[in-house]
Structures are given as structure tokens and as C-alpha cells.
């Protein structure tokens, strides 16, 4: 066997071993999380439950969420309509179940796009520093100096009511927040010994960012993402409530509350259920984010 072959065999073996090790470590981490962060684990289970409900919404919803039944409008909760019906006779439970899709789609899209863009911007800013950093940071400062909901409202209203426009406006407010965290981490990492070591052996900037930057900032990004998720869901509901978010007849929870606000006295259940669903889902994300933070970095809390 030639030396090169031997080397590559050795390398393969090493890679496999390190992969096994990281899988094992991940399993152990999960176990530790379940045992030390019970509330966080229950929240995670609840989030998974909502995701499943959203996925199979058409199967479990008893009625069509946008089918109107003029004969049964504003019906109080009863055996047929467990959560009652709204002003157009639509079944509240079915709308609630389908509405979870909108909250989750907006939440996931916004958070994932914001993480990607924010990480890119933050890494570039933090790694290069100097004038690049200065320009990027001043733009981020300007965006963050506008109260988030006002900026979102401004952009969403200009673009018109549509789910993708809600996502665009929420991404614009979330990106600077991720970029700032990533930049901070990047600057910290840039000064660390192991990055200096890899630079001294001639590693390229790109390689240093990819190999050392990314893995080291996963923890703060994941925690931030979980907390941003809750804020995003509330923001979507707020925009829809104002009539500039998700357009009707989609069963967005915010839109349902907006309809409900006209029938507060005659049909209070319309106000109750969508708000509860919204609050509990956001609560689950916040509790999960908190638990994750305690778990990943006890010093941060």
C-alpha cells in the first residue's frame, strides 16, 4: 500500500471516528437537556405538537376554515362547533388549526432567512473590521433605531397585504439583530489564539470564517432564533390585526382577532381562542429559548 493510500485510509478512519463522536455527543446533550431543562423540554414537545397539527391541518380540522355558513353565524361554542363560529359562520376551531400554518410559515421563513442574511453580514463586518464594518454598522444602527413594529408596519403597508410581504418586512427588522450578535462573536473569535494560529499557518480568510467562525457561534444564534421566533409570530399577528399583514380570508390568528374586535360583547369567545393559541405558542418558544440559553451557557442567564 502506498503512503498516499495509507494516509487517506487513516484520514477516513479519523473522520468516521470524529463523526461517531459528535453523534454520540449530540445524543448525550439531548439526554442532559431533557433531564436538566424539564420546562424547556415540555415546551419543545408542545412546539412539535403544533408543527404536527399544522402539517395535518386539513385532516384534523372538522370544517373547511373559509367555508361560510350563514345559518350559523356567531354561534356560541356547542357540540358541533367546539369553539363557536365567527360573524360569517366559519368554524373557529378549524380556522385556529389552519391558522397555525400561517404563524409557523411566517415564523420559520423569517427566522431562517434572517439567520442566513444576518450571519453573512455579521461575519463580513466582524471579520474585516475597519471601514467595511463602519459602513455596515451605521446602516444597521439606522434600521434598529426605528421601532421594530413601526418599520414592519411601514414596509408591509407599502408592499401590500400578502404573506410574503409580511415575511420581507419582518426579515428587515430581524437581520440587524442577528448581524450584531454574529459580529460580536466574530470579533471575539478573531482575537482568539486558535484563529491566530491558523492564520500563521497560512489559512485563508474564507477558511477561517467557515472553519472557526461558524461552529463557534451556533449557540448564541440558536438561542436568539428561538426567542426571535416568538417575537415574529406576535409581529405577524399585529400586522394582520391592523389589516396590513396576511390578507383575508386566510385564517391568520391576528386577522381572526381583528374580526373578533367588532363582536367583543356579543361573541367574546372569538376574542378568547385565537389570542390564547397565540400566547401559548409564543410562551412555548420563549420558555424553550430560555431553557436552551441556560443549557448552552449558564453564565448568560
Amino acid at each position: 500500500m502506498s503512503q498516499v493510500q495509507l494516509d487517506s485510509e487513516l484520514l477516513k478512519g479519523k473522520l468516521k471516528a470524529s463523526r461517531n463522536l459528535s453523534v454520540k455527543k449530540f445524543k448525550e446533550d439531548c439526554k442532559r437537556f431533557i433531564f436538566t431543562q424539564k420546562i424547556g423540554f415540555i415546551s419543545l414537545l408542545f412546539i412539535l405538537l403544533v408543527i404536527i397539527i399544522a402539517l395535518i391541518a386539513p385532516i384534523i380540522a372538522p370544517f373547511d376554515p373559509i367555508a361560510q355558513d350563514r345559518a350559523a353565524f356567531l354561534a356560541a361554542p356547542n357540540s358541533e362547533h367546539v369553539m363557536g363560529t365567527d360573524d360569517l359562520g366559519r368554524d373557529v376551531l378549524s380556522r385556529l388549526v389552519h391558522g397555525s400554518r400561517i404563524s409557523l410559515i411566517v415564523g420559520f421563513s423569517t427566522v431562517i432567512i434572517s439567520i442566513i442574511l444576518g450571519t453573512l453580514i455579521g461575519m463580513v463586518s466582524g471579520y474585516f473590521g475597519g471601514i467595511v464594518d463602519m459602513i455596515i454598522q451605521r446602516i444597521m444602527d439606522a434600521i434598529m433605531s426605528i421601532p421594530a413594529l413601526i418599520l414592519a408596519l411601514f414596509i408591509a403597508a407599502l408592499l401590500g397585504p400578502a404573506i410574503q410581504n409580511v415575511i420581507i418586512s419582518l426579515v428587515i427588522i430581524e437581520v440587524p439583530r442577528f448581524a450584531r450578535i454574529v459580529r460580536g462573536e466574530m470579533m471575539r473569535i478573531r482575537e482568539s489564539n486558535y484563529v491566530e494560529a491558523s492564520r500563521s499557518v497560512g489559512a485563508s480568510s474564507f477558511r477561517i470564517i467557515l472553519k472557526h467562525g461558524l461552529p463557534n457561534m451556533m449557540a448564541p444564534i440558536i438561542v436568539m432564533a428561538s426567542l426571535a421566533f416568538g417575537q415574529t409570530i406576535i409581529a405577524e399577528a399585529s400586522l394582520s390585526f391592523l389589516g396590513i399583514g396576511t390578507p383575508p380570508p386566510n385564517p391568520s390568528w391576528g386577522l381572526m382577532l381583528s374580526d373578533a374586535s367588532r363582536y367583543m360583547e356579543s361573541a367574546p369567545w372569538l376574542v378568547l381562542f385565537p389570542g390564547l393559541a397565540l400566547s401559548i405558542l409564543v410562551l412555548a418558544f420563549n420558555l424553550f429559548g430560555d431553557a436552551l440559553r441556560d443549557f448552552l451557557d449558564p453564565k448568560m442567564s
Binding site: A237, S238, L257, S261, V271, L272, P274, G275, V282, L283
Partner: peptide, 12 residues
């Protein structure tokens, strides 16, 4: 308190 949307609280 952090999880309840303030506009819903207003309606309630």
C-alpha cells in the same frame, strides 16, 4: 407577560 401580545390583552 412576555408572551401575551399586548393588543390581545387590550381586547380582553
Amino acid at each position: 407577560g412576555l408572551s401575551i401580545p399586548n393588543f390581545w390583552l387590550g381586547l380582553v
